[in-house]
Computed example of a mutant assay.
Amino acid sequence: MQPSLEPLDAKQYWDLRLEALDQNPEAFATSYEEAIQRENPIDGVAKNLTNEGNFTFGSFKNEELVGVVTLLQETPIKLSHRANILAMYVSPKMRGEGIGEKLLLEAIEQAKSINSIEKINLTVVTTNERAKKLYEKLGFKVFGTEIKALKINENYYDEDYMVLFL
């Protein structure tokens, strides 16, 4: 585990992001097709990795990035007490190794270190039981469900909204 990814990690992050969008399209608002059409995506990732209030944590195995999660603090003054968990993904070949939990714990600790953050929000597809169990284990609670939150081809996916109060 490393504290936070750096611009030098942008290529590996982008490659893992594309894998995530391809392997688990129901878990992300962005589609693989949209992602591969972006201009200079690696430069964009590198820039995002340096944005204030954006913390992207990664897990490496043999120098290969195998898991990521982003903690993003809200910037408007009235919302700055909130942060969001985004882009959580662990490569299928590494699932079951505890990587997701370690990544989330790192993000939660980062949030706790910022005095203004009082809560962390996330969304998860209702059928993703494995992820929901992990979030619940770490203290997240469902506070709402959006019906038909995502539409992929002709299939709809509902999403649970979850919160962890720090």
Rank of each mutant, 00 (worst) to 15 (best):
M1Y: 03
S4V: 12
L5S: 04
E6Q: 06
P7W: 00
L8V: 15
Y13C: 02
W14H: 07
D15G: 01
R17Q: 12
R17E: 08
E19N: 03
A20V: 09
A20C: 03
L21Q: 02
L21H: 03
D22F: 04
Q23L: 00
P25G: 04
A27V: 09
F28I: 09
T30Q: 08
E34W: 02
A35T: 12
A35W: 05
I36F: 01
Q37N: 12
R38Q: 15
I42L: 01
A46M: 09
N48V: 14
E52I: 11
G53Y: 03
N54H: 15
F55V: 14
T56I: 13
F57Q: 15
K61W: 14
E64Y: 09
V66Y: 07
G67A: 02
V69H: 04
V69M: 01
T70R: 05
P76M: 07
P76V: 13
R82Q: 13
A83H: 10
A83V: 14
A83T: 15
N84H: 14
I85G: 02
L86Y: 15
L86E: 14
A87E: 12
A87I: 13
M88S: 08
Y89N: 04
Y89F: 10
V90C: 00
S91T: 12
K93C: 07
R95K: 08
G96H: 05
E97R: 09
I99M: 03
I99K: 00
I99F: 04
K102V: 14
E106M: 11
I108V: 06
E109C: 00
E109F: 06
K112F: 08
K112I: 06
S113E: 03
N115F: 10
I117C: 03
E118T: 13
E118R: 15
K119M: 12
K119Y: 11
I120L: 00
N121I: 15
N121W: 13
N121S: 11
N121A: 06
T123L: 00
V124T: 13
V124A: 04
V124R: 01
T127I: 10
R130P: 14
L134Y: 09
K137V: 07
L138Q: 08
F140C: 03
F140N: 08
K141D: 09
T145M: 00
I147W: 06
I147T: 14
K148A: 08
L150F: 09
K151G: 02
N153T: 10
N153L: 04
E154R: 08
Y156M: 03
Y156F: 06
L166K: 05
